[in-house]
Design a protein around this nucleic acid. Structure first.
Lengths: 199, 199
DNA sequence: AAGGAAAACGGACTACGGTCCGTTTATATC
DNA sequence: GATATAAACGGACCGTAGTCCGTTTTCCTT
């Protein structure tokens, strides 16, 4: 992930200095190293700056906050998943029945959240940061659309949130690591829930 | 709330020094003052110690952490609610149909979480603190019992968590304050969800 | 009432996230 | 190539949560 604006057609030609991009890359790279070596908790902003060989201010300029660093770290996975459910092959992508897509979405999300639990958890410490993130909004839109296509009549906005809530990375982590449940248990449970709502 | 052990029959006679109890009370009192005056965010541990007229170490000894202070602050409300759903009058307490009790529980929880959102949110910043709390476990047990009584056949442990997740204080706060939904919307949505599962 | 052990106190100290602003550097223009 | 300007840099600085340990206080024992 670079600092360069991602949307192709976005307004005035944003001038991005080469050194800024290079630094962002080095920082991100260093972040991966630290996380791999010592875990997400060991990733302090001071250490990250030191390992990347830049000043602390540079890290904050590039990523805004510690949460921003983790967001960038998980960005690739999130983008892939997003691409998969928006335009990938069935059953996750278009082409399958809405209900099947919904079930596949939940399974995928649980797996993704479970796999990158440490990163996602560390990145979501901000008060409401968890909900304001674009990725979450895209997810919500997608789920809402599928529910509508399933012919569900209830308040879709609230229902969507209610179905998204149990997929939360913190919760998945807690249930799998502290309570001896498996990801499959969670997937089955969520599927059962969805089927009783939209089946 | 005092530091004195709450459970009557718990083990050896725990000796509690009078000054410790008195200090805990003063701290809690000061905490209420600060929160009432300037809001939950303004409650720093240094300020709390200063306003209570004790050392900072004393605050940590008494409540363990900032989250602990907020937990103590909401304790009364939580206890009342707990008493209401465990042994109060119907429909929340015993005597009503399980489904009605479940619906009443959700409505009550959303209302409680909405009302004390600031405190509950401030108190739950810890990584997994949100789930390890006794109150949450009691709630989970209660919901699981009601689901069983409703004749639900699914994996009750997972289903319980999936139904509890949307009641989260952070989520309730976000949906009501950032998304223009009302608590009634949330209550209706949750009830619809539960009814399609256990109705 | 005196003595002493255990518990509680207090505040200096550490570590961390985040900000600020004087200094440096890339790039567009001439 | 020289110059100007806006952007990026860096690290000292701040506020906060949480720890540590020498000192003070309680209260049980005799």
């Amino acid at each position: 992930m670079t600092t360069r604006r991602a949307l192709p057609l976005a307004g005035p030609p944003v001038r991005v200095r080469r050194d800024a991009v290079a630094n962002a890359d080095r920082i991100l790279c260093a972040a991966r190293c630290v996380v791999d070596a010592d875990g997400a908790d060991a990733l302090t902003m001071d250490r990250l700056a030191a390992e990347a060989g830049v000043g602390k201010g540079t890290v904050f300029r590039a990523f805004g906050s510690r949460a921003g660093v983790f967001a960038a770290l998980t960005d690739d996975f999130e983008r892939n998943f997003q691409a998969a459910y928006l335009s990938g092959p069935p059953p996750l992508g278009p082409g399958a029945e809405p209900l099947d897509r919904l079930l596949a979405y939940g399974a995928g999300r649980i797996q993704l959240n479970g796999m990158h639990a440490a990163l996602l958890r560390a990145g979501a410490r901000a008060p409401d940061g968890k909900f304001e993130v674009p990725a979450r909004k895209v997810s919500a839109m997608h789920v809402r659309m599928l529910l509508r296509q399933c012919g569900v009549e209830a308040d879709l906005e609230v229902l969507t949130e209610a179905l998204l809530a149990p997929l939360d990375a913190d919760l998945v982590h807690y249930l799998t690591s502290e309570r001896g449940l498996t990801q499959d248990d969670l997937v089955s449970g969520w599927k059962a829930l969805v089927q009783s709502v939209a089946g």
